[in-house]
Design a protein around this nucleic acid. Structure first.
Length: 873
RNA sequence: GCCGAAGUGGCGGAAUAGGCAGACGCGCACGACUCAAAAUCGUGUUCCCUCCGGGAAUGAGGGUUCGAUUCCCUCCUUCGGCACCA
C-alpha cells in the first residue's frame, strides 16, 4: 500500500527499460504518502485563513452554497459526494478570479436527537453537539475550502433567536396563522407533518415511513398558498427541469370556474337574486369545475361527507342513510378512502339543486370520492365527460347527458360505455350548440372561455383557479426544535413574544421526552408560564416547536453574519453576496426545502426584509451513491461505505477524485470499491512524474534525448486542448470528464517525456497548467507538488486559472474519414484550413476509394467540413 | 392513469448545431520484472464469421437523411414526482 515504508516502495521502483532514467531514488520525499501531507496543508490553510471570504468590491463575487447536513453523527459517502465536487467547483471559480464564499453549517434541530435522548438518556443538545464536533473533524479531512468563520448551527440560541424573530415577522404580516383543521399526524414520530412531508400512494411519513393518520388539531401555518402563482414562475433562474416540473405538479394549478347552484329544499325558500359572492348562504352551493363548458351535462351534484351543508340539505326520509354513510366515511383512513381502484359509494340526500344554465332539477348525493380538502367540497357531476362521475352514475342509475361530441359521433347517454373526455363540438347546450371545445385547458379552450364569459355576465359563476398546494403546517409536537415564540392569555389571545425577550430558550433541565403526542415542553414544571405581552396577565407559552425546514429556509442568510446579535443578517454582507450563485444538493428536497425556501424568500421580500424574489440563481442536484446491488445504503443493511476508511487508505484527494470520476455527478451510480484503484493509480502516476528529479532523459549511450519541435508543439497543443475542455466541464458540472481528460493528458505527458520533452519550456508550462487544473480536485497533492517539490510560490490555491492559448490548441492537419455509401473505407490527412475542393480531390485520389468506385463516377460527394467525406455511388 | 428523466461492451461511462460509436477508467487475459507474490510497466479486450478480410451493433420497430446514439413517430423497460384534485 502507499503507506508502506519508503525503502520497499523504492526497491520496486520500475523503470528498467530506460537504464539511465531517474536520478537518485534515495530522496525520502519521493514516496507518495498523502496521509502525511494532507493534514499538514489543512492546518496551514486554516491558520493562514486562505479560504476566509470577506467583502471585496474589486472582485466579482460568487456565493457557492451546498446543502448543510443534519448532524447524525458520521459523515457518510453521500455527504462527500455532495460536498467535494461542489468544493472543487467553488475552488475553480475562485481561481477564475471570483471572490468565493463557500460556507458550511449544521441543520441541527430534529427528531433523531430525541430518539437518542430516549435511548441513551442523554440530552438532545449534548448528543447533537457531540456529533457536530465529530463531523467538523471529518469535514476538515475533506480538504474543502469551507469558511469556518461563517459556520452557522441552527440549534444555537444565537441562530434560533432569529428563526423565532422571522416567525413573529410572518405573524405580524398576516403570513402566519393558527387554525384548527384535520392535519396529517405521524403516529410513530408523534407529531403533525406538513403536506409535503407525507409521501407516496401509501401516505407515509417522509422521515420514518409510517402511514400517517388524520387528526383534528389547532396548528400554526404559514400562508404559502399566497405565493402559489409566483412559485410557478421560474423565469430568470437556472434550475433543473425536473425540479421545476416537480414543484409545478405539487402546486397543481387548475384553471376553471366556480359556479353557484341554487338548492331546492323543503326547509328554505330560494331567493333567485342571490349574488355570486353570497356563498355563505346554505341555499346556494358553489362548485369548482375545470370544465364549465360541460355545465349543461351536469345531471347531479355530489358533496363530500364532511361538507357543512349536507345535514341541511338532507331530507327527513334520507337522514338515517346519510348519517350512517358519514359515520362510515369518518371511520376509514385516508388511504382507504382515496384508493383509486375502490368502487364508488354514496347515498342520496333527498335534496335537489337547480342547474343554473338550463334550470334542470338535479339530485344531490353524498359520496366520499369528493374531498372536502379540495375546491369547495362539492362538485357538479358530468357523467358523460368525466370518468369518475360516469362510474357513479352507472352504479346508481343516474341520468347521463352528453354535451360534447366529436364530428360524426352520436353519443347516447343511455348506451355509452365510458365517459368521453376529448375535444368536439358542444351539443344539448342551448345557445352554445356548435361551439368547438378543444383539448386545451382553461381560457385557452374557446368553449370554456365562452361559457365563463356567459356565467360572469349572468352572475351565476366566475372564472376561478384552484391549487393542490396547501399552507405550510409548521407546528411540531417535539422538544428539539425552535420554540414557537407565541404566548396565549385568556384576555388577549395569542400574541408574539416581545423582540427583546428573544430567544425563547429551550430548557436544559428537562427529563421527560417520551413521545406522548404532545410537546415535551408542556410537561416542564415552569417553562410554559409567561406573562401576556399586551396586558401582563398570566399567560402560557406555545409548547410546540417549529418544523426544522423553517430553520433551513434562511440559513443561507445567516452565513452572511452568523454572530450578528442585532439582526438576522448584516445588510452590507447581504448586498454584496446575495443571491446565492450556485446551490448544490440532493433532489429529494424538490417539493420540501427547495419549495419552502423559495416561499420564504418571497415572504421576506414582501415584508421588506430582503430584495429579489429568488434566493438561488443556479441549482444543480447530485445523484445518489447506491450500494452495489442498486439499493440505498443504510446502516441497517450494513452496506454503508465509510469515507473515513477510504481516506485512511488512499488519502482525501483520491476519494475526492474518485467521487468525481466514477459516475455522472448529476446522476449517481452504485458504488464500486475496485474502481477507486484507478484514481489511486492516477494520483501515483502524477506524483511519480512530477517528483522525478531528473528533468531530462538520456539514451542508453548517455546522450541527452531532446524532443523534436513536433513533440513539443504537440505537447503544448494537448495541454491547451485539455485546459479548454476542463474549463468547460467545470463550468457545466461534468466532473467525470474532467478527470478523464486529465488522465489522458497525463498519458500524453508520459509519452512526451519518453520523447525527451522533459525540461523544455513546453514541458514546464505543461506541469504548471496540469497542477493548476488539478488543484480544485486534489488540493493537497497539487499544493505539495507545487510548493514543496517545484518550489513555486505558496499557495497554488491563490493562483489564477490559466488562459487557453487558442492558437496553440488548434490542430495543423486533421485526419478525415472517407465513407463510400455510408461506410468508412479510408482516411485522408489534410491541412486544417484545406478548402472543400481540396478535401474532395484528396478523398477521390485515394487508391482505396478508387477501388470501391470501380471506375464509376460517384453520384454525389458530400464534404462535411473538417469532419468527413461521404461518397455516394 | 398523468408529468418528468433515462436506456450505449462484463461494469461505471465517453461521443449529440446529425459526421470515425465505445474516449477515460474498472474488470479480465497475456507478457516483462520477481525465487515468489504485491506493486509497477507493456500488449490486448463490443459481438459474430470462412479471422486475409468482412459483417452486425447504441432498449424494440418504423421514418427523415448521402449519413442517426443524436431529429420525428409507435412501443417496451427502469427510476423519480403526482394521483378519485372535480
Amino acid at each position: 500500500m502507499v503507506t508502506k515504508p519508503v525503502s520497499k516502495a523504492r526497491k520496486s521502483a520500475p523503470v528498467k527499460r530506460k537504464p539511465t532514467e531517474v536520478g537518485t531514488t534515495k530522496d525520502k520525499d519521493k514516496s507518495f504518502s498523502p496521509q502525511a501531507f494532507e493534514p499538514k496543508w489543512q492546518k496551514k490553510w486554516e491558520a493562514d485563513k486562505l479560504y476566509r471570504a470577506v467583502i471585496d468590491n474589486s472582485k466579482p463575487k460568487h456565493y457557492a452554497l451546498t446543502m448543510l447536513p443534519y448532524p447524525s453523527g458520521d459523515l457518510h459517502i453521500g455527504h462527500w459526494y455532495a460536498m467535494t465536487p461542489s468544493d472543487a467547483r467553488a475552488r475553480f471559480k475562485r481561481m477564475q478570479g471570483y471572490n468565493v464564499m463557500f460556507p458550511m453549517g449544521f441543520d441541527a434541530f430534529g427528531l433523531p436527537a430525541e430518539g437518542a435522548a430516549i435511548k441513551h438518556n442523554i440530552h438532545p443538545k449534548k448528543w447533537t453537539y457531540a456529533n457536530i464536533e465529530r463531523m467538523r473533524t471529518q469535514m476538515r479531512s475533506m480538504g474543502a475550502m469551507f469558511d469556518w468563520e461563517r459556520e452557522a448551527v441552527s440549534s444555537d440560541p444565537e441562530y434560533y433567536k432569529w428563526t423565532q424573530w422571522f416567525f413573529i415577522q410572518l405573524y405580524k404580516h398576516g403570513l402566519a396563522y393558527r387554525k384548527k383543521q384535520a392535519v396529517d399526524w405521524c403516529p410513530k414520530d408523534n407529531t403533525t407533518l406538513a403536506r409535503e412531508q407525507v409521501k407516496g400512494e401509501d401516505r407515509v411519513c417522509d422521515r420514518c415511513g409510517t402511514p400517517v393518520i388524520k387528526k383534528e388539531l389547532d396548528q400554526w401555518f404559514f400562508k404559502a398558498t399566497k405565493y402559489a402563482d409566483e412559485l410557478l414562475r421560474f423565469e430568470g433562474i437556472d434550475w433543473p427541469e425536473f425540479i421545476k416540473t416537480s414543484q409545478t405538479n405539487w402546486i397543481g394549478r387548475s384553471e376553471g370556474a366556480s359556479v353557484n347552484f341554487r338548492v331546492e329544499s323543503n326547509q328554505s325558500t330560494v331567493d333567485s337574486d342571490q349574488s355570486v359572492q353570497n356563498t355563505d348562504d346554505w341555499s346556494l352551493i358553489t362548485v369548482f369545475t375545470t370544465r364549465p363548458d360541460t355545465l349543461w351535462g351536469a345531471t347531479f351534484m355530489v358533496m363530500s361527507p364532511e361538507h357543512p351543508l349536507v345535514d341541511k340539505i338532507t331530507t327527513a326520509e334520507n337522514a338515517e342513510a346519510v348519517r350512517v354513510y358519514k359515520a362510515e366515511a369518518e371511520k376509514q383512513t385516508d388511504i382507504q378512502r382515496e384508493a383509486k381502484d375502490k368502487e364508488k359509494t354514496g347515498v342520496f340526500t333527498g335534496g335537489y339543486a337547480i342547474n343554473p344554465v338550463n334550470e334542470e332539477r338535479i339530485p344531490i348525493w353524498v359520496a366520499d370520492y369528493v374531498l372536502m380538502s379540495y375546491g369547495t367540497g362539492a362538485i357538479m357531476a358530468v357523467p358523460a365527460h368525466d370518468e369518475r362521475d360516469f362510474e357513479f352514475a352507472r352504479k346508481f342509475g343516474l341520468k347521463i347527458t352528453p354535451v360534447i361530441q366529436a364530428d360524426g359521433m352520436e353519443l347516447n347517454g343511455e348506451t355509452m360505455t365510458e365517459a368521453y373526455a376529448h375535444d368536439g363540438v358542444m351539443i344539448n347546450s342551448g345557445a352554445f350548440n356548435g361551439t368547438r371545445a378543444t383539448n386545451d385547458k382553461g381560457m385557452k379552450n374557446p368553449a370554456i372561455k365562452a361559457v365563463i364569459e356567459y356565467l360572469e355576465q349572468k352572475g351565476i359563476g366566475k372564472r376561478d383557479v384552484n391549487y393542490r398546494y396547501r399552507d405550510w403546517l409548521i407546528s411540531r409536537q417535539r422538544f428539539w426544535g425552535a420554540p414557537i415564540p407565541m404566548v396565549y392569555c385568556e384576555t388577549h389571545g395569542w400574541n408574539p413574544v416581545a423582540d427583546d425577550q428573544l430567544p425563547v430558550l429551550l430548557p436544559d433541565d428537562i427529563t421527560e421526552w417520551k413521545p406522548t403526542g404532545e410537546s415535551p415542553l408542556k410537561f416542564h414544571p415552569t417553562w410554559k408560564n409567561a406573562t401576556c405581552p399586551i396586558g401582563g396577565e398570566p399567560a402560557v407559552r406555545e409548547t410546540d416547536t417549529m418544523d426544522t425546514f423553517m430553520c433551513s429556509s434562511w440559513y443561507h442568510l445567516r452565513y452572511l453574519s452568523p454572530h450578528d446579535d442585532n439582526a438576522p443578517f448584516d445588510d452590507a454582507e447581504y448586498n454584496y453576496w446575495m443571491p446565492v450563485d450556485t446551490y448544490t444538493g440532493g433532489s429529494e428536497h424538490a417539493n420540501m426545502h427547495l419549495l419552502y425556501f423559495r416561499f420564504f424568500h418571497k415572504a421576506l421580500r414582501d415584508m421588506g426584509i430582503t430584495e429579489g424574489g429568488e434566493p438561488v440563481m443556479q441549482l444543480r442536484n447530485q445523484g445518489m451513491v447506491l450500494a452495489k446491488d442498486n439499493s440505498k445504503m443504510s446502516k441497517s443493511k450494513g452496506n454503508v461505505i465509510a469515507p473515513d476508511v477510504l481516506v485512511k487508505k488512499y488519502g482525501a484527494d483520491t476519494v475526492r477524485a474518485y467521487l468525481m470520476f466514477f459516475a455522472r455527478w448529476q446522476q449517481g451510480a452504485p458504488w464500486d470499491s475496485h474502481g477507486i484503484e484507478g484514481t489511486a493509480r492516477w494520483m501515483r502516476r502524477v506524483w511519480t512524474l512530477f517528483t522525478d528529479p531528473s528533468t531530462a532523459l538520456r539514451s542508453a549511450q548517455g546522450e541527452l534525448i531532446t524532443a523534436s519541435a513536433d513533440v513539443k508543439k504537440n505537447l503544448r497543443r494537448r495541454v491547451h486542448q485539455t485546459l479548454k475542455r476542463v474549463t468547460h466541464d467545470f463550468e457545466n458540472f461534468e466532473f467525470n470528464t474532467i478527470i478523464s481528460s486529465l488522465m489522458e493528458l497525463l498519458n500524453e505527458m508520459y509519452k512526451a517525456r519518453e520523447a525527451g520533452a522533459a525540461g523544455t519550456p513546453e514541458w514546464n508550462e505543461a506541469v504548471e497548467i496540469y497542477l493548476k487544473m488539478m488543484a480544485p480536485i486534489a488540493p493537497h497533492i497539487a499544493e505539495e507538488l507545487w510548493t514543496n517539490h517545484l518550489g513555486k510560490p505558496y499557495s497554488i490555491h491563490q493562483q489564477k486559472w490559466p488562459q487557453v492559448d487558442e492558437a496553440a490548441a488548434r490542430e495543423d492537419s486533421i485526419e478525415i474519414p472517407v465513407q463510400v455509401n455510408g461506410k468508412v473505407r479510408d482516411r485522408i490527412v489534410v491541412a486544417v484550413d484545406a478548402s472543400e475542393d481540396e478535401i474532395r480531390k484528396a478523398a477521390l485520389a485515394s487508391e482505396v476509394i478508387q477501388k470501391y468506385l470501380e471506375g464509376k463516377e460517384p453520384r454525389k460527394v458530400i464534404v462535411a467540413h473538417g469532419k468527413l467525406v461521404s461518397v455516394v455511388v
